[in-house]
Design a protein around this nucleic acid. Structure first.
Lengths: 238, 238
DNA sequence: CAGTGGTCTAGACCACAGC
DNA sequence: CTGTGGTCTAGACCACTGC
């Protein structure tokens, strides 16, 4: 059974996308929409909460619900809430991978703490260069917990690891912690990212969790400063 | 009247902080906590939702609610959900400001679109260097809508603009869109951030909204790569 | 099967904006 | 005062886990 509030959120998203509800325009009141979808007002509000957190809607008590005007932020650049990997994020581009290294090892003490592992629970270590439209895009240095992301092969790594996690392993991603920083280029960056020794690099360090709270990935991905940025929609509920 | 779910969230946060609920430990079941706080289970769950989104808790259906282990992410570095400016973020440090420029002007066409202004609605333009413990920390280039952030003075800018917005103007911040990128240093960066011409710079570009959805600030803040990073907790509710 | 958290309801009441 | 969205309830029922 699908969740009503997710279905409704999806439908509202579609209506905004198609311009049925236009920028700056007021939506029908919650009670009317609740009746239309034949749900309680609480459930409708929950659907709207999702869209508000995504930044599509904002609500003003005593006034109404409005479609947020977009301007800067509706397009391009990496979204904080995407977990499906580059392959899905860039449907119109050609995404390739170059596997720079792929092995299995025991985790360092630091990694044991981050991924909540014992010293004998192995991890895959993958260094992979993502290439978009023939240009080097992101250099990923990733560790996956072997017990969770089972039976990785070079073929999977060459295609989409997240697609494998989602479709074949049927695991659900629950969230991530990320740290974004700038850095000077390392020798590896210079070699693979088509960077010089003065090219700034954007680094995204992350721990990714399954929906049940188990961490399964630790990675650092680095890009040239002019190839990638990171956007965040940050709405305080009120 | 304060909101029950916020009070409960605050109390649970305190209990985690004080170790009453310890890392990895299971919390009392929702029904028991609901009884303890004398609220409905829905309300208790809403409090837990907040802490789950902050990454403090995670829940496993059929099992229980647990305190998330922290490791990497519990410390330092700029949090995505902070809106109260450096002065509050760094209570133990000495935060000073150097005002590099402060004037009032009409918005450019681009800025009109971003802040939803007419060409005759003025903006303050402030370039300010934030200095933490005597070291240059962030170079901010900010525009505020004059009609909203009224009567700015050099004194306010020297202290804390967000404190002024919150306490004196009694405005509520509702959220922000941010874009984070790396960049090469500009001449201004080199001059003020104690950077050389090869020092990478981290830039945070943001539009900040009031709780009612009105944008009131557009800014770009830049720091040396080794002075600042940006962390995000990104939990998909389930 | 028992026990956990997740969803959903129908309705009451509150807070706020604008006439 | 009316109409908007926000909070809260008490309880039903569902989904998942682990014994």
């Amino acid at each position: 059974m699908s969740k009503k509030y997710e279905d409704i959120a999806e439908e509202l998203r579609r209506r905004i996308d198609q311009g049925i509800y236009q920028e700056g325009q007021m939506l029908p009141q919650q009670i009317a929409l609740a009746e239309e979808f034949d749900v309680s007002r609480m459930t409708l509000k929950k659907a709207m909460d999702i869209l508000a957190m995504e930044g599509l809607l904002f609500r003003k008590r005593g006034v109404g619900t409005f479609v947020h005007k977009s301007t800067l932020w509706n397009t391009s650049s990496y979204k904080a809430t995407e977990y499906r990997g580059l392959t899905v994020q860039m449907p119109d581009k050609k995404v390739e991978s170059e596997i720079i290294s792929f092995d299995i090892q025991f985790p360092s003490e630091e990694l044991q703490k981050i991924l909540l592992l014992d010293s004998n629970e192995a991890v895959y270590h993958i260094i992979r260069l993502r290439i978009v439209d023939k240009k080097p895009y992101i250099l990923e240095d990733t560790y996956y917990v072997v017990d969770i992301v089972k039976n990785l092969t070079e073929e999977i790594i060459y295609e989409s690891i997240y697609e494998y996690i989602r479709s074949d392993l049927e695991l659900k991603v629950g969230g991530a912690y990320r740290k974004i920083s700038a850095d000077t280029p390392s020798d590896v960056d210079i070699k693979h990212l088509d960077a010089s020794e003065n090219t700034p690099v954007l680094e995204v360090e992350q721990v990714v969790y399954l929906a049940n709270g188990t961490p399964f990935e630790y990675s650092k991905s680095r890009s040239r400063f002019d190839m990638r940025s990171y956007t965040i929609t940050d709405i305080i509920p009120h």
